[in-house]
Structures are given as structure tokens and as C-alpha cells.
Amino acid sequence: MTTIERQLVGYLKDAHALQEHVEAVLSEMLTTVASVPDICRPLGHYADRSRRHTREIEARLHAHRTSPSLVRDAGALFAAVLDAGLGRTRRDPTGRHIRDAYVAVHLQIAAGEMLRRVAERAGDGETAAVAAAMCDDAYAMSRELSDRWDLAVELSLRQHGVQNVPPPPREDDR
């Protein structure tokens, strides 16, 4: 295996571990926001696409005659379980989950962009295409979440007992 192929496999394993982590976090988030369709619906669609990307990354690992890293995946899964456990004790699960989803999506973008670029330089168009699709979905989810910041704040304030949540300021007032 050449040096660039080793790098590519390393990025594939990293992407797989991150996907496993994000899937676990999304599962917890979907439980928390189940009663909020404006958030649950896009997160649910994104979770479905993320599972598909995980399978595609696994297929690319197998094409390179390797498999996901159990150590990386176990670490990511442990972190996700820890996050989920901590999330239950927070008083503001919806607001924090939306924030955490936004961060996770941007980690996926970073992992996908690195994977795509290494794959292109290694001449692996199939892996580059998988990474590009992963990035496209993550960029779209980032926009979806960005469009819901005011809703996240409103839900957060309500969870903290604010009865009459003031509306967000108008754009020209900001």
C-alpha cells in the first residue's frame, strides 16, 4: 500500500468513526425533539442519509481491503453515549442538541472535505464521490439548522420557564 493509500484509508476510518458518533447523537436528539416537527423532520431525514453514507464508507473501506477501526469506532461510540447521558441531565436539551447538531454537521463537513481531496489525489473517484455526497448533505443540514436558531432559542427559553417568549428582533433592528 502506498503512502497516499494509507492516508486515504486513515481518512476513511476517521470518517466512519465520526459517522458512527453522529448517528448515535442524532438518535438521542430525535428522541428529545420528537414533539417538534420543524426540527425532528429535517434531523430524521439527515439521520437516514447519514446511515447511507456510513454504509458507503464501509464499502469503500472494503474496496481498499480493510475494515472500520474498532478502536476509533469504540471511542466515538463511547463519546456519543457519554454525550447522550449528559444530555438527559441538562435543563435545556433542545437548545443544546441543536447547537451540538450544528457542530457535528461541521465536523462531518471537515472530515468529508479532507476525505474527498485525499481521494481525488489518490485517484479514487468512487471514494471522492461518497465524500462529496456526505459533504453536500452536511452543508444542506447546516443551512436547515441555521434557519431554526430562533426556534431553538424559543424552545430553550420555554424549557427554562419563560412564559411569554418575545419574538426575535426584525432583521433591520439587528
Rank of each mutant, 00 (worst) to 15 (best):
M1T: 14
T2K: 14
I4Y: 10
R6K: 15
L8R: 02
L12Y: 05
K13E: 13
D14E: 15
A15P: 03
A24K: 05
A24V: 04
A24R: 08
V25C: 05
L26P: 00
S27C: 09
E28L: 06
T31L: 12
A34D: 13
A34Y: 05
V36G: 04
V36N: 03
P37E: 07
P37I: 02
C40E: 15
C40K: 15
C40G: 13
C40D: 14
P42V: 12
L43N: 01
L43I: 04
Y46W: 12
A47T: 04
D48S: 13
R49L: 12
R49V: 10
S50G: 08
R52S: 06
R55E: 11
A59L: 00
L61V: 04
H62K: 08
H62L: 11
H64P: 08
R65H: 15
T66C: 07
L70Q: 12
L70Y: 13
V71F: 12
V71L: 14
R72Y: 13
R72D: 12
L77W: 11
F78I: 13
A79N: 04
A80N: 05
V81D: 06
D83E: 03
A84K: 06
G85A: 02
L86Q: 00
R90C: 03
R90W: 09
T94F: 06
H97A: 13
R99L: 12
V103K: 04
V105E: 02
H106K: 12
L107N: 02
A110C: 09
A110G: 11
A111G: 02
E113K: 10
M114L: 15
R117E: 13
R117Q: 14
R117M: 11
V118D: 03
A119P: 07
E120K: 09
E120R: 10
E126Q: 07
T127N: 00
A129L: 10
V130Y: 03
V130W: 01
A131Y: 04
A132E: 08
A133D: 09
C135Q: 03
C135R: 00
D136A: 12
D137R: 06
A138Q: 08
A138G: 08
A140T: 10
R143I: 10
L145H: 01
D147N: 14
W149R: 13
D150Y: 02
V153C: 03
V153N: 07
E154N: 08
L157R: 09
L157D: 08
R158I: 03
R158Y: 04
H160Y: 13
V162C: 10
Q163C: 11
P166Q: 04
P166Y: 02
P168A: 15
R170E: 15
D172K: 14
